[in-house]
């Protein structure tokens, strides 16, 4: 599904590369956790995978297609949930969804039905006409995910989708991700909540300083490194030093 070889990216004026000779691959139909401390290169890697960053070196193919020559066709097959709430606060939830849906050139009736179904599924149908700025943090996160599902993506990439959300919203989001995966779709997601990743992911990739540290099934890795859980493994491999990024 995803193949990355010798990926390198250094931003202008940055002291160190964000991604440094990173290579990994994932098979389709899995939930993959892309984990790492702050500044490890997770968001940069995701931005390259979804075609937002074009200026890099290395080989990257997604769903079997090299992204540099297939960026537009891949965008139609990908669903990206950015770390930020990528919605217009001044628009209602339904106005946001209609707008982004219409940009995918989805027929109006199909789009309408899709939005209705997703709002129902995410428990936002009663708040569809409320402005996003009036939503709670959890509601915003759910709406943010819905906006990334309008094109029925075969690969869903989520950047910290449960950051700062209430317990109920988090539970709902994780439940949805499981069912979405069970429907045959692939998911890559980043998170700092390692307990969540341990229970959700079929495979985890831990990166640090832009390089791959380890990749595998969470339970197997925990056993192999003889740690109590994924968090213990993470700390063992990346160290206890604070990682403050500016």
């Amino acid at each position: 599904m995803i193949q990355v070889k010798n990926l390198f990216k250094q931003f202008k004026n940055a002291e160190h590369p964000s991604v440094n000779d990173l290579s990994f691959s994932f098979e389709a139909g899995k939930i993959v956790g892309l984990l790492g401390p702050n500044g490890a290169g997770k968001t940069t890697t995701i931005s390259i995978l979804c075609g937002l960053i074009k200026d890099y070196s290395g080989e990257v193919s997604v769903l079997g297609l090299p992204i540099q020559s297939n960026a537009e066709s891949l965008k139609m097959k990908l669903g990206i949930v950015p770390q930020q709430i990528a919605l217009y606060p001044g628009l209602s939830c339904i106005e946001n969804l209609k707008y982004f849906g219409s940009l995918y050139n989805i027929p109006a009736s199909t789009l309408h039905e899709k939005i209705r179904s997703l709002l129902q599924q995410f428990g936002l149908h009663e708040h569809a006409n409320k402005l996003i700025k009036d939503f709670s943090g959890g509601m915003k996160r759910r709406a943010n995910i819905i906006a990334s599902l309008l094109n029925n993506p075969g690969l869903l990439i989520l950047d910290e989708p449960t950051a700062g959300v209430d317990v109920h919203s988090r539970n709902m989001i994780l439940g949805f991700l499981k069912s979405y995966n069970e429907a045959g779709n692939s998911i890559i997601y980043t998170s700092h909540i390692l307990e969540e990743a341990e229970s959700l992911c079929d495979e985890v990739l831990i990166i640090d300083n832009g390089k791959k540290v380890v990749q595998g099934h969470p339970a197997k890795l925990v056993a192999e490194y003889q740690t109590e859980n994924l968090e213990g493994l993470f700390l063992k491999l990346t160290g206890y030093k604070l990682r403050d990024t500016l």
């Binding site: 937002l52 139609m76 930020q84 709430i85 990528a86 606060p89 982004f100 940009l103």
Partner: peptide, 22 residues
């Protein structure tokens, strides 16, 4: 600037099709 800092600009760029239309 609100679009760019708020993230909706990023979402617009993730949608296929010419950004010139937007």
């Amino acid at each position: 600037i609100s679009e760019r800092t708020g993230g909706s600009w990023t979402r617009l760029k993730l949608i296929p099709g010419s950004f010139a239309h937007i």
